Simulated assay, not measured.
Amino acid sequence: MDAHPLTAPDTRPRLLDLCCGAGGASLGYHQAGFAVTGVDIAPQPNYPFTFHQADALEFLAAHGHEFDAIHISPPCQAYSPLNAYNHKTYPDFIGDARDLLIRTNVPWVIENVVQAPLHQPIVLCGAMFGLQLYRHRGFETSRPITAPAHPEHLHRCARNGYLPQPGQFMTITGGRHSRAWQAKAAQVMGTPWTRTIREVCEAIPPAYTRYIGTTLATHLTTTTAPAAA
């Protein structure tokens, strides 16, 4: 018997995660059944899947059509309310990304803060998935996806940088925080492999994209299923 049998081909649908960061969104899509490839302009040494360091829009234009689905999380700082205090100029390419995504003719998702110029997004919240945080994020999708019921916000949030007390939810934004805070934030987010404050603060809870990805996978199955005889 051959001691090194051939590896079975990977038949999972392929998803491209652009502006992937440390891979919070990627993990959710992986849990939903996708083979994930991440792309980010910055090195991501802790990213858990196949990774390419590249410009997101350039990679999308060149390779987007090679995938079964695409997710992109453009930089959110230009739309964040926090930018009202620092008056800096940040990248703003949601419109350019949308144009390129439409040309690929595959299902796609654009994620960002709820203040971003997304078209009819659904809004996901940590409370929808039993997480100890709210962390609202908008998702514009090329296929119809309905958000779960949005629970009433009954929990107070700890101040940024402070560990939550019993009955409190966690606030996760940037800053100079303790290692204990970073470890707790990673646990609450569901990203235990993240090693820096920036990695965890810029991540999306994988529960969000697991939900999105499960619906996308259903669309793909329905689209590719053979017609009944």
Rank of each mutant, 00 (worst) to 15 (best):
L18F: 05
L131W: 05
T11W: 14
S178F: 00
M128D: 15
S178A: 06
V200K: 12
H150I: 13
D17H: 04
H136P: 06
C76R: 01
W181F: 11
T141A: 14
E202W: 01
D2K: 15
L15N: 03
A227L: 13
Y134K: 11
A147E: 05
L101P: 01
H219T: 12
A207W: 01
E66I: 02
S80T: 08
A227S: 13
A84D: 15
P48Q: 06
P144A: 12
G190F: 01
N112C: 11
Y162C: 13
T173E: 01
M1C: 11
S178L: 02
I110L: 11
H136C: 12
G167A: 06
I70F: 03
I212D: 00
R137E: 04
W193E: 08
H177S: 10
H52E: 15
H155I: 03
H52P: 05
L124Y: 04
P166S: 08
F129V: 06
C20S: 13
A158S: 15
I102C: 09
W181D: 03
P117C: 11
F34L: 09
G190V: 01
E111D: 08
R179Y: 12
V188D: 04
P9H: 12
E58T: 14
G28K: 05
W181Q: 04
C19E: 00
H219S: 10
G64E: 00
H153K: 11
Y208G: 07
L216Q: 02
P206C: 11
M189G: 05
L60I: 06
T104I: 04
D92Q: 09
E152H: 08
P117V: 05
E111C: 05
A225R: 10
A61L: 04
F169E: 06
Q115K: 11
V106P: 00
P164C: 14
G174P: 02
A186S: 12
P107C: 14
I102D: 06
G95V: 09
I110T: 05
A180I: 00
H219Q: 12
V200Y: 03
C157L: 12
T221L: 14
I72V: 09
A127T: 13
S80Y: 00
G38A: 09
H219I: 13
S178D: 04
V39E: 03
H52K: 15
A56Y: 01
D55K: 10
C201V: 11
M170A: 07
I41N: 14
P81Q: 08
A42C: 08
P9Y: 08
T89P: 02
H65M: 11
P43I: 03
T214A: 09
G24Q: 06
L154N: 14
A32H: 01
A3N: 09
Q115N: 13
I145W: 07
H150T: 09
G213C: 03
N86K: 10
H63S: 15
L154P: 02
Q132G: 02
H136N: 12
A22H: 04
A183I: 03
N46D: 15
L216P: 00
T7K: 13
L118V: 05
I102K: 07
T146V: 10
H63C: 14
G24R: 07
A78D: 10
T218N: 15
R179W: 07
Q53T: 05
D99C: 14
A225D: 15
S26W: 02
A32K: 01
Q187A: 12
D40A: 10
T89W: 07
L101C: 09
L124V: 06
D17L: 13
R143H: 07
T209M: 08
D99V: 05
G95I: 06
N83S: 15
A183V: 10
C19A: 15
H153N: 08
